[in-house]
Amino acid sequence: MVPPVGSAAIKSGSSDAKAWLLLLPALAFLAVFFLVPLGQVVFFSVMDPGFTLKHYTSFLSDSFYWRVLWGTFQTAGIVTIFALLMSYPLAYMIVRMGGHFATVMLLIIAMSFWTSFLVRTFAWMVILGNNGPLRAILEAFGWSPAPQLLFTRFSSTLAMVHLLIPFMVLALYSVMKKIDMNFVRAARSLGATPFQAFHRVFLPLSAPGIVNGCTLVFIMCLGFYVTPVLLGSPREQMIAGLIGTQIEEFLEFGEASATSVILLLVTLAIFAIYNRFVGLDKLWG
């Protein structure tokens, strides 16, 4: 018989010490090489060289920064919605069809999932490039001269949808495959049309997957650096790109730190909301 949950109460003294001893290496390492640098970012955001809030006031009073922040949210929202709309039917068909279809589709998803962001970003660079196939196709259809595709908000958004679809599909699939199809059959036997059975039974049951996938994709988008920097418009940066510019080009560590803290707070807020309603440990299922 497995001891019930409260079993540690009696022997807590020695067991606590053992636990902390085992945790010591990991916690000490994370404290020195994770918490300290993270704390430094927070620290530098309010120093110049003495205590100051000017990095925040200059961020919050400048409409440029607000536009970056708003643009980042907008892009993340659009990417999340498109990724969901495209992934849901695919994940649904994988679960419904099963067999070889599911194997091949999951293989494709896994292939994309494991291929470096940089490789996939490069692929979009070729496709959307001035000498690329997409412009050639548009021109062949008479849209001449075809519009500039690369280095626009469109190109980085499109690429991010592509990059994050595998995450969304896997989040949806892991929930959908546990849904008992007898629920749907029961609904049908009780008189529901196929659409009603989907809408009233399957969709609500898959909701946790939708929430997980959307949270994951939205948060990854908020902090996305590589793809927006390489494919996006230099005039319409996202927040991570802005931080990069502040470091690399202007060596403005105070401002970069303040921007980082704001990005961090936004991210943590979303995680906190998720944690409040779902529980953080569910996110990585």
Partner: peptide, 8 residues
């Protein structure tokens, strides 16, 4: 007793 109170 696992919890010092209830006896298994």
């Amino acid at each position: 007793s696992y919890d010092g109170w209830q006896k298994a």
